[in-house]
Design a protein around this nucleic acid. Structure first.
Lengths: 170, 170
DNA sequence: ACTTAACAGTTCGATTTTAGAACTATGAGG
DNA sequence: CCTCATAGTTCTAAAATCGAACTGTTAAGT
């Protein structure tokens, strides 16, 4: 399976993984939310190779997550800022951070605290139902095929039923 | 940077990315939440190579996200089920799906709909503040160093300030 | 008894990605 | 002219992934 194949799967998760589903991309996006905007800033904060950084930034721009805008002429320089599509990744980032805060902290505790400006308190992100406002857990959610589901009726199809191996097919 | 170096960074996001931050791991976890439990099930649903699948499952078990439990003797067979630590990844999964539903759908619409058993309605996940219940956005959140922050006072340090390149350092 | 099948992996050569380091390009400042 | 800052590009070596076949265990069919 190639990376671009992911984006054509009838699964919002696979498509999203095609965009942000690799280590460096996620770390670059972390930096974006921490207000890093420039090539050198990403490079020195992350220790990513310049080659990969250039490639990942290009990909994120192509996908509309970042916008590349000039901040000076002569020499032409650009910086990378989150589009609305990119800003909408915030819940994903917060969910990732929160899981790490819950399950991956050492004895010293959390590396970062998040303060909600509106209420002034340090908080955790909680995922709730848009309809009733109750917190969500996997067991309370039932999945249906939607209008964009694959044409076959089942939730998913094997697509490769030929599992001929062992002792040569001859 | 190696994968295991990520898990020692003083950043909950980096640590989490060390666990789930690759394409196949995320897709394997998707299958877990869709109730896949067995090796062949993962393999045929995803088209992942058996080699990688075995490796990723082992890693997820080692990290306490999945538990490998026998479901029959003779021949000994095991299945992989989510631990509580694994189930806690649900908000991440939902956030990823929701971003895809918002930004990556084709003309036909969403591949899947999610129904909340408690209220009976199709819903979107919304991330709110644990303290005041208001929906969160990046701009309303202020970050402080927590007790597990790196020893230097700044939010982050370059760690590699020596950027000697160009025309030999001699 | 022999053959086929299901399941859960392991092994191995070929291809693709990533790492690591140097190099290019443009203009500023001394 | 030399050096620095910024933003890349290019190159080779190392690591990860792919694709396909192979191993081992037991049940079922003939």
């Amino acid at each position: 399976m190639r990376w671009d194949a992911l984006e054509e799967e009838p699964c919002s998760m696979a498509r999203t993984i095609g965009v942000i589903g690799d280590r460096w991309t996620l770390l670059i996006l972390r930096e974006c939310f921490l207000r890093t905007r420039r090539f050198e800033g990403f490079q020195s904060a992350l220790g990513i190779t310049r080659h990969l950084l250039a490639e990942r930034l290009k990909k994120l721009v192509r996908q509309g997550v970042l916008r590349r805008i000039p901040y000076q002429d002569s020499p032409k320089r650009h910086e990378y800022i989150l589009t609305q599509k990119g800003l909408d990744l915030y819940p994903i980032m917060m969910a990732i951070v929160h899981w790490g805060d819950t399950h991956m902290v050492d004895t010293r505790g959390r590396p970062l605290l998040h303060e909600h400006r509106k209420c002034g308190k340090n908080f955790d992100p909680v995922m709730v139902c848009s309809e009733c406002g109750e917190p969500l857990s996997a067991k309370e959610v039932h999945i249906h095929p939607g209008p964009g589901a694959r044409t076959s009726p089942a939730t998913k199809a094997p697509e490769k039923p030929k599992a001929k191996t062992r002792r040569s097919a001859a």
